[in-house]
Design a binder for these strands. Structure first.
Lengths: 217, 217
DNA sequence: TTATTTAAGGGGTTTTTCCCTGTTTATTTG
DNA sequence: CAAATAAACAGGGAAAAACCCCTTAAATAA
């Protein structure tokens, strides 16, 4: 909250044109004002470390060069956990949304923003502490809750990476190398996934991943 | 050629309604006349064995119960190789077309028949001995000739069955059982395919099969 | 402090993958 | 027609990879 009684928002987004109009839009809301703007996570870090006032909310784009939304969210939550992160992204797939929320984002918006939706999101973020659009809530419910076969589709970070690499022609040894983990750990992921997904071998894994859109061919 | 100077056609098709209008259509062509109609390969066999006059052309549907188009074509070629088979099918995938032509079909038509196309096909069958629509020719050329990576996509019967089974969660031992072949033979298919398709393991096989529409998920 | 999670190791069986050889059956071709 | 050639099928043997169960250490969360 600034001296005018408005809640402050920092915008972290690479697309300067888009970010510019976004700033004007936010400033037009009665309860909000843009505090500052950063082109990526690194710039945000610098600005905050240089003593900028802390915003109440950070509008955070996921797809940025240098320091992306995931890393940035991680840093924010570690250093300034009171700031509420509203994630912005063009991706609407379950895993991206899940990952962002796991990193600590309190809300998730797809990038084709309608002014009223952004206003609602910001207000709910202040009032309730979180905002979820119907679409995102639905996606989350669908993805985390067990499906028809009782399979829980909530993958952890490394699990998902393993799963996707296992859908390539790499051996488990090679996967262990690129993930910088022991082959034994990789084997643990494998066993756990095979049990949970009720599959018999790697072919089953590929088929599962395709059905659930976890990989594309 | 019958007494009226018309070429004779036998229709082998399960869909009696469709076959009925097909007969009328063929009889309306100046050069052709339907000799008889059979609902499946077995009926055709019986009719021919009972001494029916042999048709010049057999219009053969692939998807039939009892004795399908492939088996029927095989029998026709073994017993009456002079008869020209024109295959009819809703399937337009490369492997089905290839298989039918390998069985001896002289032409291949997709089932949404335009009267002029059928007339052309029958006439070319008599004149040239074969008929290939542009679409089928193209498909064939594309499938048999080496593609960008020099991979020859012309699979033999058993090879294709193996390939498709290998895209399931079955072990090679299980595949050998259902195909009633030695595990060593199956291993031979595997080695040959891996080399030809330039893949490293079963995951590669699944990905290849999906890209080339040899399996569906 | 007690669970839970994450990473990793021990040790074993089965499956896959590879290469090379041999037999039988078609298919060419001299 | 017989001889050469190609193909489909099958075996031996072996190394690598995949698969499976069970335990443990460290870090985290409850």
């Amino acid at each position: 909250m600034n001296k005018e009684g408005k809640h402050t928002v920092a915008v972290v987004d690479d697309h300067s044109l888009f970010a510019g109009s976004l700033e004007k839009l936010i400033n037009s809301f009665p309860n909000f004002k843009v505090l500052f703007h950063a082109k990526n996570g690194l710039e945000l870090k610098d600005l905050i470390n240089e003593g900028e006032k802390l915003p109440d909310i950070i509008l955070l784009d996921i797809n940025m060069p240098i320091m992306n939304g995931f890393e940035t969210a991680e840093w924010i939550m570690e250093n300034h956990p009171k700031i509420k992160i509203l994630a912005l992204s063009m991706e609407d797939d379950e895993q991206t949304i899940l990952k962002m929320l796991r990193k600590g984002a309190k809300g998730y918006l797809l990038k084709d923003i309608h002014p009223e939706i952004l206003n609602t999101a910001l207000n709910e973020l202040i009032e309730k502490g979180f905002y979820h659009s119907e679409k995102v809530s639905e996606t989350l419910l669908h993805s985390i809750s067990p499906n028809e076969e009782g399979i829980i589709m909530d993958f952890k970070e490394n699990e998902l990476i393993f799963l996707q690499l296992a859908c390539s022609e790499m051996t488990y040894k090679e996967i262990a190398d690129v993930m910088d983990l022991s082959p034994k750990t990789i084997d643990g992921y494998r066993q756990d996934l095979f049990k949970r997904l009720k599959i018999k071998n790697r072919v089953g894994l590929v088929i599962f991943a395709l059905k659930k859109n976890l990989i594309k061919i």
